[in-house]
């Protein structure tokens, strides 16, 4: 009886708050059918009429390329970056969490502190460097930092989760003849699934939505990603913007990350309870 009541409250909570959470998406969906005057002039959520035109015109893009190109480019940029990041940050986190080596504290401090300087002032020297490496107008400025674990947030995150796993696990694996790399790959990584999936989701979202780095490093329109494409027809200085088309394309651009999250989240709840953690 008591348990029943509690569940009811839980449902009421998740539904009421869920509505607040989903409201922007609903608003955005209906906004794709409004012209500028209706969009900015009234507060009503439902549009006067529905038409697929904003989607069709929006998809055509401006100029030479359709959104097909921009979606494909975004995948080309994001997927390798995320794959590299997961591999590199995982192994680095393992190194920091489980081993004690010379200068570890200093190196760890150095890693964390690279997050503490605002991007705005690192942007220019970084561009100079990447330009010297010949990376401008390629996706290397995104792939290589992924490969070389330049995401301290994700390393630190995995360190914290690794430290939640008992060391007895490692010890018994060593007894079985595993080397340190095997311990990570065979024993710890599977237990870190919830954490690793959150790394995948975070990194995907960041790269997917990242505007400023894309802006700086990508010049050719044929290499534009979604975040650039969505802003490429907004000239606040002199022309009226077809907001309904932009909203329509923004909405479409959200679909892959939403799907990713929807299908990845079951791994958050498939935790160590299923595995053998009672070391």
């Amino acid at each position: 009886m008591k348990k029943h009541m509690k569940l009811t409250w839980a449902y009421i909570f998740v539904i009421v708050f869920g509505l607040i959470m989903i409201f922007p998406l609903i608003w955005m969906f209906f906004a794709t059918f409004k012209d500028n005057k209706e969009l900015f002039g009234s507060l009503t959520i439902l549009p006067k009429a529905f038409s697929l035109e904003p989607y069709i015109n929006g998809w055509k893009g401006s100029g030479q390329f359709t959104y097909l190109t921009f979606f494909a480019n975004t995948f080309k940029l994001v997927v390798p970056t995320v794959a590299f990041t997961v591999l590199s940050t995982g192994i680095v986190a393992y190194g920091f969490a489980r081993f004690n080596f010379p200068a570890k504290r200093i190196l760890f401090g150095l890693m964390i502190s690279t997050m503490m300087l605002p991007d705005a002032v690192i942007m220019i020297p970084r561009y100079v460097l990447y330009n010297k490496l010949g990376w401008v107008d390629t996706y290397f400025p995104f792939w290589v930092p992924g490969l070389l674990a330049c995401y301290p947030f994700l390393i630190f995150q995995q360190i914290q989760f690794l430290r939640g796993l008992p060391r007895e696990l490692d010890e018994s694996a060593y007894m079985d003849g595993c080397n340190p790399f095997m311990v990570y790959a065979r024993i710890l990584m599977p237990l870190l699934k919830p954490c690793i999936f959150s790394v995948i989701i975070f990194q995907t979202l960041w790269r997917w939505n990242d505007y400023f780095n894309n802006l700086i490093y990508i010049s050719s329109v044929k290499k534009f990603t979604l975040s650039l494409a969505l802003k490429m027809s907004i000239d606040s200085q002199g022309a009226s913007t077809p907001w309904n088309q932009i909203m329509a394309m923004s909405l479409l651009s959200l679909i892959p990350p939403i799907l990713l999250y929807f299908f990845a989240q079951k791994y958050f709840v498939e935790g160590v309870t299923a595995g053998s953690i009672k070391g």
Binding site: N131, V221, K231
Partner: peptide, 21 residues
């Protein structure tokens, strides 16, 4: 052709000028 919206254009041109790109 390297075209885009107004936002960020200034930052981009400044960055490119400074690096000779």
């Amino acid at each position: 052709a390297e075209y885009q919206g107004y936002d960020g254009y200034y930052e981009k041109i400044m960055t490119e000028l400074s690096s000779g790109t």
